[in-house]
């Protein structure tokens, strides 16, 4: 626990110092990594802990981004102040669509999420007041101090990534988190000992949507421009899924490892080796297949078990046993 707190503080300090440590390109790259990490954690929360595999999380990226652009431009407010609108809008949308979606299980839920995302994307593309297929520029960007724009974005992204990890860590150590992990492991058994599985799923779905929406909004704020093709791009959820699957689903460490591999591969193949983005996708797919065959639950669980690693251990150790004699082994008590 102490070790975790110290490394958390060191990471936070590094993030604060980031803009002075990294060059301009490095800073933008780090911002992207941190945002994708936050999104992956949110997807992992839903898939890994509530058993709901969403193929449509890009819809929350899009709604977050459009929500930010629309409100910021309409009210002529600094986008920084409007940022909290993005997760709020996504939370509202998620709580409404949860009603019909939660009647579907497994693959049906996954596909329905995707279909919902496509519907929203199609509607946005048709909506002239949202810029149609051309999209929207962020007019309120004139309210921003562009000298500090990249560092501030980096800090927001860092705060978001660190916040989701810290938040999830605390959540998993709470009573609610214990319930979540029980549902992850066995929903039938969880229900049978009194865990309200549907309520858990609902809360997690809303949280996951809100987090993704915020990360999406920050991401498009960095572009100062949003278009439906980019915002509702299915690749968003593919990245989240890839990162969580290879890193370790249902663990807090997995998405961190996954993000490192994801961006490491991209830099290696497109930057260092100079291959096209197409080859990068081929490499991603190959890595995913190999990892799935070797360890279906991702890289972290076997690493953790083999080397006895504990990074963000959310397990509870049993208190020392009180002196209760076992019921079995007391022959003669039955008669």
């Amino acid at each position: 626990m102490k070790g975790i707190a110290i490394s958390y503080a060191v990471t936070a300090a590094l993030l604060v110092a980031g803009p002075w440590l990294l060059g301009e390109g490095g800073l933008r790259f780090a911002t992207e990594c941190l945002l994708i990490l936050a999104m992956a954690q949110m997807w992992n929360l839903l898939a890994g802990y509530a058993g709901l595999v969403s193929f449509g999380h890009q819809v929350f990226v899009g709604i977050g981004a459009y929500g930010l652009f629309l409100i910021s431009d309409t009210l002529d407010l600094s986008p920084y102040w409007v940022l909290p609108i993005a997760p709020l809008a996504c939370a509202v949308v998620a709580s409404v669509i949860a009603l019909p979606l939660f009647r579907l299980r497994e693959a049906y839920f996954s596909i329905a999420m995707w279909v919902f995302s496509e519907i929203v994307a199609a509607l946005v593309t048709k909506a002239a007041w949202l810029g149609g297929s051309a999209g929207l520029p962020l007019r309120s960007s004139r309210l921003l101090d562009l000298d500090w724009f990249e560092p501030v974005l980096f800090w927001i992204a860092g705060g978001l990534a660190l916040g989701t990890i810290g938040g999830l860590f605390l959540l998993m150590r709470s009573g609610f988190g214990l319930g979540l992990m029980s549902v992850r492991d066995n929903d039938l058994a969880a229900m049978s000992v009194g865990v309200d599985v549907q309520r858990n799923r609902f809360i997690v779905f809303v949280l996951s949507a809100a987090g993704c929406g915020l990360a999406g909004a920050v991401s498009f704020l960095g572009n100062l421009y949003v278009s439906p093709a980019a915002a509702f791009d299915v690749n968003w959820v593919v990245y989240m899924m890839f990162i969580v699957m290879i890193g370790g689903i249902g663990t807090l460490e997995g998405p961190i490892i996954g993000t490192v591999i994801f961006f490491g591969l991209r830099e290696l193949i497109t930057d260092q080796l100079g291959y096209s983005a197409g080859w990068y996708l081929v490499a991603l797919g190959t890595v995913a297949v190999i990892v799935m065959l070797w360890s279906p639950r991702g890289l972290w669980p076997p690493l953790r078990d083999r080397f006895g690693l504990k990074l963000l251990g959310v397990g509870r150790t049993a208190p020392t046993a009180p002196d209760v004699p076992p019921l079995a082994g007391k022959v003669g008590q039955l008669g």
């Binding site: 992990m181 029980s182 992850r184 492991d185 066995n186 039938l188 058994a189 969880a190 049978s192 249902g250 397990g315 509870r316 049993a318």
Partner: peptide, 8 residues
């Protein structure tokens, strides 16, 4: 038996 397999 329906344990929560990844929990202690």
């Amino acid at each position: 038996p329906q344990p929560f397999p990844h929990l202690t």
